[in-house]
Amino acid sequence: MFRRLPEVAGDAIPFTIDGRPASARAGDSVAAALLANGVTTCRNTPVSGAPRGPYCMMGVCFDCLVTIDGTGNRQGCQVRVAPGMAVETQDGKREVER
């Protein structure tokens, strides 16, 4: 669980997590925004179905893979949140069309 420091200002950026409205701040990666919104689990692994969440925050562990605006397997920590972005947590093997 993470919280914002009180000094952090800036406009709220609206986006959605699995269709639910959520709010991020300029400069947040998708993974940071998930944690800031209390979402610690972002996918289930395609191997065993075990839950995973962001681990490295620098693009090396691939545990924060999510579907962003319909494109699957994106590294949440490497993509910045944009207004209106649709972020979906991933369940196992993502669909091949996405």
């Binding site: 914002r4 420091l5 400069g27 940071a32 944690l35 610690t40 995973r52 490295c56 620098m58």
Partner: peptide, 18 residues
């Protein structure tokens, strides 16, 4: 989920004030 690298937590602090 809930286990992160300390470096990862530091990135969250620097980029997002988390």
């Amino acid at each position: 989920p809930g286990v992160l690298g300390a470096g990862a937590a530091q990135v969250l602090l620097k980029t997002s004030g988390l």
